[in-house]
Design a protein around this nucleic acid. Structure first.
Lengths: 205, 205
DNA sequence: AACATAGTTGACCGGTCGGTCAATGTCAAG
DNA sequence: CTTGACATTGACCGACCGGTCAACTATGTT
């Protein structure tokens, strides 16, 4: 009775969770609707009752997972309990610990779910690409704010905080992709701290 | 007679070129052997005469395309006709011009063929992943050398040239992925120069 | 002319792809 | 007890997947 009550109405959620996991571990194209349904214990007909297409399922995953990440991880990482620049270090540390945990569990570094999808799907689906673009822009915002705060606190020389935040997101994505290619979370730990160098004015000659 | 002579023996090459283009424009999983053959004007049976599998075709593409890029583009970009750090700028410029040209031609920024494949396939094929890892390491080498030269010439403060080269490759890949997600080559031009900041010792208040 | 080798062709394999559909089941409100 | 909305099921669709194979042709060597 209890189990049926909880099982009956979370079919949609189970599909979202299962697909998210499979897409992350492999890729969008490699994972079929059939496999998602099998893994989630749902018949294919039900899938198309909840989602008009595989593409729409993906968009739903993007919205939901990013909302969750923003409201939990990001909120914690960028909390104002430590100095601004320390929060960047905390972001890097949370990334390292995530990839370490995933590798310990699955034997593989899976990279960034958004970066992975961006590389695979940006040329194939404009709607997905725009969604990913918005996600990356969302990530720039708190970083930009951290830089502003650091400048106000005199911890940082004057610089273009918007552009620097953009560069930092790019670096973070590249870093993650390298960790995936090396299949080694330590890449994040050794190369990560260099991200702070991006917040330093160029000194040439 | 002439045309047949040149057509008869470049079947393999046509498959390589066509597949390379298609994989780059879309993705590994999205492009089928059938489509490659159609586009190349080759029957599927011939495909499997030259390549034991789609996977092996991909490995051949990786080897060939990277060899060509290294021996032409990279050799020019890192030629010793200008000061070391200027060569980094020249690398960024060549990247910008490439993505600009591709976008003008296809309407899309396609990103880095190796980065794309790394994101899609690193968790699925160890051999491909190792090959991509080697490619990225190959790219680090000339950058590392540039940094060494710059240090010797007093253009740069002392730093870990190996680690910095690694960070620069990561940044370049992230940059390229962002340009793809934004579908805008200008991302490379505006965010690119920040790569040089990675070659500056951390200065913290 | 005979022979081996490389290259080409098209039919064929089992399996999976994303997606559709009509029939059926479940359940709560009227 | 009926109605209607939501949910579930399994059969089905045409197309395509990566890959195999035996027969055939073209080429260069002896």
């Amino acid at each position: 009775m209890f189990s049926s009550m909880t099982q009956v109405h979370d079919t949609k959620q189970r599909l979202l969770d299962t697909a998210q996991k499979l897409f992350y571990a492999r890729s969008y194209e490699d994972v079929g609707v059939q496999e998602i349904c099998q893994e989630a214990g749902v018949k294919k007909g039900s899938f198309y009752h909840f989602f008009p297409s595989k593409r729409d399922l993906t968009l739903a995953i993007l919205d939901e997972s990013w909302k969750r990440y923003r409201e939990t991880m990001l909120a914690q990482v960028f909390a104002r309990d430590i100095p601004p620049l320390k929060r960047i270090e905390r972001l890097l540390d949370s990334q390292y610990r995530h990839h370490k945990a995933v590798k310990d569990e699955t034997g593989q570094v899976l990279g960034c779910p958004y970066g992975n999808l961006a590389g695979e799907m940006s040329t194939q689906d404009e709607v997905i690409r725009e969604r990913l673009k918005r996600i990356f822009r969302d990530l720039e915002a708190p970083i930009e704010q951290v830089l502003e705060e650091a400048m106000a606190a005199g911890e940082l020389a004057e610089l273009d905080s918007r552009a620097t935040a953009g560069a930092m997101v790019a670096y973070l994505e590249g870093l993650t992709l390298m960790a995936k290619t090396w299949n080694d979370p330590e890449v994040v730990r050794t190369l990560g701290p260099a991200m702070l160098k991006l917040a330093v004015p160029v000194t040439r000659g």
